[in-house]
Design a protein around this nucleic acid. Sequence first.
DNA 1: TCAAAAGTGTTTAGCGTACACCCATGG
DNA 2: CCATGGGTGTACGCTAAACACTTTTGA
Lengths: 244, 244
Amino acid sequence: MADFPSALQRFPVTVDIVALTVRDDVLNVLLITRLIEPFRGRLALPGGFVLAGEGLGEAAIRELAEETGVEQVPGHLEQLQSYGPQGRDPRGDVLTVAHLLLAPDFPVLSAGSDAEQAAWCPVGDVLAGERHLAFDHARILVDAVERARSKLEYSPLGAAFCGEEFTIAQLRAVYEAVWGTRLDPRNFHRKATGNPGFLEDTGRMTTGDAGRPAALFRLAAEARSAAGEPVRAVLNPPLMRPHS
Amino acid sequence: MADFPSALQRFPVTVDIVALTVRDDVLNVLLITRLIEPFRGRLALPGGFVLAGEGLGEAAIRELAEETGVEQVPGHLEQLQSYGPQGRDPRGDVLTVAHLLLAPDFPVLSAGSDAEQAAWCPVGDVLAGERHLAFDHARILVDAVERARSKLEYSPLGAAFCGEEFTIAQLRAVYEAVWGTRLDPRNFHRKATGNPGFLEDTGRMTTGDAGRPAALFRLAAEARSAAGEPVRAVLNPPLMRPHS
DNA sequence: TCAAAAGTGTTTAGCGTACACCCATGG
DNA sequence: CCATGGGTGTACGCTAAACACTTTTGA
């Protein structure tokens, strides 16, 4: 069996995770405060080096667990894009494979220890440049948000932001937060429920809220992503975002 | 300034290029025949190791030039996805960043020498499994074709398969080849020409062909990709592919 | 004059949008 | 009873699809 070329260049490889959720009707991203150089004290995307014997997805899940304390992947994880290896890290060339996580508002580890502290931050504030992100993470975040926006149009992944069971209004709030628009509740209801293979009625209802109780839905079985595999199901017709 | 962790794992990184074009009304992919182990004699995507001091896009362009003889990027190049590093290469863990090139039917280097020989192959034949590709290149090809198909719907990149100037019928042939469908010439003509910011009439006409001469168009300035940057312009309304 | 391909006009059916309206609960 | 939000019905305008028809060339 052949071997690698002798003068072969090798690169450190990291995974970064852009974890998005909807909190208080606003899109939020999970950021950590860096405790070590470079960029010590700055906000950054959670992530870290890929270890020997690891796949990219595995590394992303491990890093997420280490920095937030989640045991399982709390939503939908997919690869976003790779960046580098040039000019990203003052220590040298590093290739990073960015990942996108769409998840409900899960609690993050708030260890009072010296562990890196993760926290949800409104995407709008971060992109407005109030807090500069480490490395090229601002650019990665921009790409991630744009990907998330278009994903909602033609895939059932909006439901990844909700819990196991949700109302149509909660799902609509997700779309409104991610797209930054207002949607007609009545037309949205029809489009969402009328889309074959998207939602499943659980038969249960909300109770205790103001107004008429809402039916609880779950993501249809055929629209759920199977263990890290990409969601093949497509929204047909798509839920188009209102174009400017 | 901080340094990398001492026990840091480093990986060889390759770029692979899925170069697609339309030849004889069929989608084709550029493949090389491997002259060295592993997978010697098998068909593979063009590509190779990323060198020190190189960005991913640069490496893709260099490898394409080395293996096909093209001097400039002959079409639209964009990053597809990364694969690995586990279980892809019998020599060890290798991360690959796959790229997608949509280009007109450019001539490939047919050196009679011992250089790797590149050739256009119909995608349908390759995916039918008549010729097994090296590494995980069959899977990469599947992902690339699916990406190309959806790109045509909402981006002006169909024109990347045509030359500088083209007729509406040539552009329609691209869509038909990539989607594997037939489109109504008259409705397609209206959709394509009626899309603001997509096509520009050159004022010139074809001549010499059978039938009425056709107007020659070029891609509108605002729809051209600026030096490796992603095409931001979006087809509005999209050219939807007929769904089953 | 005919064949072939380009391009335009017209009809129809379906969908997105807007919005009136009714339903079911909590206070 | 009223406010609040859930859910349905309906009218209108736009667009995709189908296809008849005209235009302009080569043979």
